[in-house]
Amino acid sequence: MSADAEPDRRWLAFEAEALPHADRLFRHAMWLSGNRAEAEDLVQETMVQALQSFHRFTPGTNCRAWLVTILQHVRSNRLRKQGRVIVDSALEERAASVVPFVPPIPDRLTDEDMLLAMREIPAHHQEVILLCDVEEMTYKEIAAALDIPIGTVMSRLHRGRELLRTALARRGTGPVAIDQGNKAGR
């Protein structure tokens, strides 16, 4: 194959492997940033970086996890440059450790209940639950994406789920008494 064809070949491979994940990637970015313009910019920068380094992607591995990892790193670098505090782990751990009782999961829940309850828990617990339960990444992939030890991933998941169940329980069992017109806010 000629050198001139290399960009085309890489683009077509990128199209097949990575572009189908653009929608999910945007949803992830939108959830994290809560701002449409910021989410679009985040996804664009992620995709540009992914295309430039696509030769490093290993065929047969999880492409979505690879893209989400790039997105997390792009976002983390931006937050660092802006001087925004990402997390106070100690505070989160203390807050999580005071959960006295983990209630059962309510029988009936709407999409809105789920998303509102997620918004009620600390951001770093949201993040790991999102990566594990929604993006279906392994603990190892999550640890790489967030640049934290696997043990921290597990403890954040465990406590995050307790907090999520507590938040969901507040929304009641049986018929859910939530106004269906409400939107998941921030």
């Binding site: 929608d23 949803r27 939108m30 449409r36 679009e40 999961i105 997620m118 999520l164």
Partner: peptide, 23 residues
């Protein structure tokens, strides 16, 4: 089963949320 349903419910809610979809 309840834990599994919660995970699946969360995934579905996330994928269906109109607020999170791109233009």
């Amino acid at each position: 089963a309840a834990r599994r349903a919660l995970r699946e419910g969360l995934r579905s809610a996330f994928v269906r949320a109109e607020d999170l979809s791109p233009r």
